[in-house]
């Protein structure tokens, strides 16, 4: 297949990299939504992860610590969301928006002295001779650890939600918080933990943007990836493996349009760069209409606040 001088193996390898941030963030949001909480602050948490990860990596010289720092930074932000919505009973939609607005401002404040710096490079996992296999080696064995971690996390979340007691409790809380409460589960505590997990995942995704994908710091670096991640959760009908498919689909579109830009396609750059957003909308429309629509699979208590009153 000839895509105007674009090598398919390189394309697939780079779409795997491009999809990591949205995959991680969407996976975290999936768990949050499974617990019945709608956190629209993914974009804000991602960008906090991006800057905290970047600062940590630059200051310590270790990308590994950078990813930890990114996850912790975004987790701290998600704690605000957890406190406001779970303890103070604030509206989840509005709080999520506040999280994004605040995160964008705070990240740009923290990142002031870090524009134009290169972060330490994240090493590629050494697979030795495996990486030299033509095509397959380039696609499967030439990535940094986070790419493999993200896929492992999809499997992990799927297994936990489907087979473990923890997963059952999370799902119960998200389907009917009153019933879960009556059974003696700590609805608020479980939801707070889910929100923190979502924050950490969004932070990892954000750190991946600033440390590997770009890699440098500019204001608004996540450019809507958090919103696309939210859309992917709907696309995936709240099923972990479909997150993987959705993320690869959007990673593919992003990489393809970037390659077309670089190859000097006839279509103006601006129209190419809006394509991921347009396709996200298109996919949302397809998924939310018709008889087999995704929303039928949505957690029933999604977005509803829980208050244990007598």
């Amino acid at each position: 297949m000839d895509l105007g001088g674009i090598n398919p193996a390189v394309l697939i390898a780079s779409l795997m990299v491009a999809s990591v941030p949205i995959m991680l963030a969407a996976l975290g949001e999936l768990v949050v939504e499974k617990a019945g909480v709608l956190n629209l602050g993914v974009e804000g948490m991602m960008i906090m992860g991006a800057i905290c990860g970047f600062v940590t990596a630059v200051e310590t010289g270790s990308p590994f610590l950078g990813f930890i720092g990114g996850a912790l930074g975004a987790m701290a932000l998600s704690l605000i969301f957890a406190f406001l919505t779970q303890v103070l009973q604030a509206n989840q939609v509005a709080t999520g928006l506040a999280l994004t607005l605040f995160g964008l401002g705070l990240s740009s404040l923290i990142g002031q002295g870090y524009v134009g710096i290169k972060p330490p490079a994240t090493a590629i996992v050494p697979f030795g001779p495996l990486a030299d296999i033509p095509v397959v080696g380039r696609i499967l064995f030439s990535h940094d650890p986070v790419v493999y971690l993200s896929i492992a996390l999809v499997a992990g979340v799927w297994a936990v939600l489907k087979f473990s007691r923890t997963g059952l409790v999370i799902r119960a809380v998200g389907e009917s918080h009153d019933a879960a409460h009556a059974l003696g589960y700590k609805v608020t505590r479980i939801r707070i933990l889910a929100i923190l997990f979502g924050g950490a995942m969004a932070g990892l995704g954000g750190a991946y943007v600033s440390l590997v994908r770009v890699p440098q710091w500019t204001d608004g670096i996540t450019a809507g990836a958090g919103w696309i991640a939210l859309a992917i959760v709907v696309f995936a009908s709240w099923k972990p493996w479909r997150i993987l498919i959705g993320a690869y689909l959007f990673g593919g579109i992003t990489v393809l349009q970037l390659n077309l830009q670089a190859a000097g396609a006839r279509i103006p750059v601006e129209y190419l760069s809006m394509s991921p957003y347009l396709i996200t909308i298109l996919v949302l429309v397809i998924m939310s209409s018709g008889k087999g629509r995704a929303s039928l699979n949505a957690p029933v208590a999604l977005g509803q606040n829980f208050h244990a009153s007598r």
């Binding site: 928006l97 401002g105 705070l106």
Partner: peptide, 12 residues
């Protein structure tokens, strides 16, 4: 950016 963060804080 401090003002942007300040405005976000207000909503919180």
């Amino acid at each position: 950016a401090a003002i942007q963060a300040f405005q976000g804080m207000l909503l919180f």
